[in-house]
Amino acid sequence: MDILEIMQILPHRYPLLLVDRILEIELGKRIVGLKNVSINEPYFQGHFPGFPLMPGVYILEALAQVGGILMIKSLNLEIGKYAVVFAGIDDARFKKPVYPGDQLILELEAIALKKSLSKMKGTAKVDNQVVAEAILYASARELSQLKK
């Protein structure tokens, strides 16, 4: 799945769209996405000057976005009508830093996929080494419900 299809599924846009490509998807089971980490990411201006590291919250958000694609595709939700929002996170661990120039591989395995509340195990890797992992919870909401 290329960036154009990703942008049809996810409502995120610059600077918060954190998925460049979907490499694999098994509906209802698992998904693998890719994020090319560039020095041009806006967070590198302040995290940290002279020693750029990708913030952990952005790694988790990238995992969540890939998980959102798995939810929308697996649950056959109408594209453009739903957004997937974070509902919780457990057991987040950051094992190695992520630097500009890295390719972040984002793997999610479905534990339970439901529109009201899904649970997925996420693992982020660089050069086949785990850099972060977490259990993510998410809910699919109609975009119209998210507006005030």
Rank of each mutant, 00 (worst) to 15 (best):
D2I: 10
L4M: 14
L4A: 02
L4Q: 15
L4E: 15
E5V: 13
M7L: 10
P11C: 07
R13G: 01
Y14G: 00
P15L: 08
L16T: 00
L17P: 03
L18G: 02
V19F: 09
D20G: 03
D20E: 10
R21S: 05
R21F: 05
I25L: 14
I25K: 00
E26F: 03
K29H: 10
V32A: 06
V32D: 02
K35V: 07
K35Q: 10
K35R: 13
V37I: 11
V37G: 06
S38E: 14
N40A: 15
F48I: 06
F48W: 10
P49D: 06
L53M: 09
L53D: 01
P55N: 06
V57K: 07
Y58G: 00
I59M: 11
I59A: 03
E61H: 05
A62N: 01
L63S: 07
Q65M: 08
Q65E: 14
V66P: 00
V66D: 03
G67V: 07
I69H: 01
L70I: 11
L70N: 02
M71E: 08
I72W: 03
K73A: 09
K73W: 13
S74W: 04
S74T: 11
L75W: 05
L75N: 11
L77I: 14
E78T: 13
E78G: 02
I79N: 10
I79Y: 12
I79F: 12
G80A: 11
A83C: 13
V84S: 10
V84M: 13
F86T: 06
F86E: 06
A87V: 13
I89T: 13
I89G: 02
D90N: 10
D90H: 09
D91L: 12
A92Y: 00
A92I: 13
R93P: 02
R93V: 12
R93W: 06
R93E: 15
F94W: 03
F94L: 09
F94Y: 15
K95H: 15
K96A: 12
K96P: 03
K96F: 08
K96H: 07
P97C: 08
V98L: 05
Y99S: 14
G101L: 12
E107I: 04
L108A: 01
E109M: 11
A110W: 04
A110G: 05
A110S: 15
I111H: 08
A112R: 15
L113F: 04
L113C: 14
L113N: 15
K114T: 05
K114Q: 14
K115D: 08
L117T: 14
K119D: 10
M120K: 15
K121T: 05
G122A: 15
A124G: 14
K125F: 10
K125P: 06
V126K: 04
V126P: 01
D127C: 13
V130D: 07
V131K: 01
V131H: 09
A132E: 10
E133Y: 04
A134Q: 00
I135A: 02
I135H: 03
L136N: 00
Y137T: 03
A138F: 06
A140R: 00
R141K: 15
R141G: 01
E142S: 05
E142T: 11
E142Q: 13
S144R: 11
Q145C: 01
Q145S: 15
K147H: 07
K147W: 08
